[in-house]
């Protein structure tokens, strides 16, 4: 599609939005037109690459990730992402898919955390392809497509992560005095035309978001994972870089998945 056509679509969709709802501009119609087709999701190609990376013998120990335990037993991927974050006995901490991936890539394959986290995300300004971590994550997550968000909250450390995540969600800091809650604790709010979910209450908003990540972000021309989303929100709040897979980011994800429980995964997602 030519740039001109896209510009035309944006304009007409915006105008349509304005004509039908002068009070509440929105770009939903444009979004549906642009990325409503699941079979046209470029993330499908990244998933294929993730599968190859997962099954390939790699790292100093020259083994695949097929024995990695994402919570349902070694090698079980089906439905595993839908039940994360969870407590893992071997690491004695609550882990999301991405911090768990780091564990397996260091323990099983022999990589070091330093080399793995040197560049966690593709730089969209340089039009880079997704990193191995991003490709692996979206492959793992896609094995929970159609299932319900169902992260466990039985272990005391799981309960702690959810509680602490909620506390982090409300913590105000930085030169803009922002907390996650500044943008995500009220209904029907927008930054410019971007809708903002109310994640302070359980229900549809948070289910819709948490069930659609990892997502192919059209504006980045790349797949983005939940760890990237956490980094991105902190970056927008003018805070330092969030540490990939840190207990802080995992706790936020644990809180959001607890709020979004029973949402149905539609993976991979596609969004702005």
């Amino acid at each position: 599609m030519s740039r001109l056509t896209i510009a035309g679509l944006v304009t007409s969709a915006l105008l349509a939005g304005v004509a039908f709802a002068a009070e509440e501009p929105n770009a939903d119609a444009y979004r549906e037109m642009t990325y409503g087709d699941r079979d046209a999701n470029p993330a499908l190609l990244v998933i294929d690459r993730g599968e190859e990376l997962f099954k390939e013998k790699r790292g100093p120990k020259n083994v695949s990730l097929e024995q990695c335990d994402f919570g349902l037993g070694a090698g079980v991927l089906k439905g595993a992402y839908a039940q994360l974050p969870r407590y893992f006995k071997d690491t004695d901490r609550v882990q999301d898919a991405e911090s768990r991936l780091l564990t397996c890539m260091t323990e099983l394959q022999g990589f070091t955390v330093e080399e793995l986290t040197k560049q966690t995300f593709a730089n969209d300004k340089r039009n880079e392809d997704n990193t191995d971590l991003e490709a692996l994550t979206v492959y793992i997550a896609a094995q929970s497509d159609g299932m319900k968000i169902n992260a466990p909250a039985e272990h005391p450390k799981e309960q702690e992560a959810i509680k602490v995540g909620e506390g982090i969600f409300w913590r105000r800091q930085g030169p803009l005095d922002f907390a996650c809650a500044t943008c995500h604790a009220d209904d029907k709010k927008r930054i410019r035309l971007q809708n903002l979910g109310n994640f302070s209450k359980a229900g549809v908003d948070v289910q819709k978001t948490m069930s659609a990540w990892p997502t192919y972000r059209v504006s980045h021309a790349a797949v983005r994972t939940m760890q990237h989303r956490m980094w991105d929100c902190m970056w927008q709040m003018r805070l330092p870089d969030a540490q990939y897979g840190s207990p802080m980011t995992v706790a936020l994800i644990a809180y959001l998945n607890a709020q979004g429980k029973d949402g149905t995964y539609a993976l991979p997602g596609m969004s702005r």
Binding site: G167, I168, R171, L239, S246, P247, M248, T249
Partner: peptide, 9 residues
């Protein structure tokens, strides 16, 4: 929360 924040960045 403060502990997690301190190690989170």
């Amino acid at each position: 929360v403060e502990q997690y924040i301190a190690s989170g960045f």
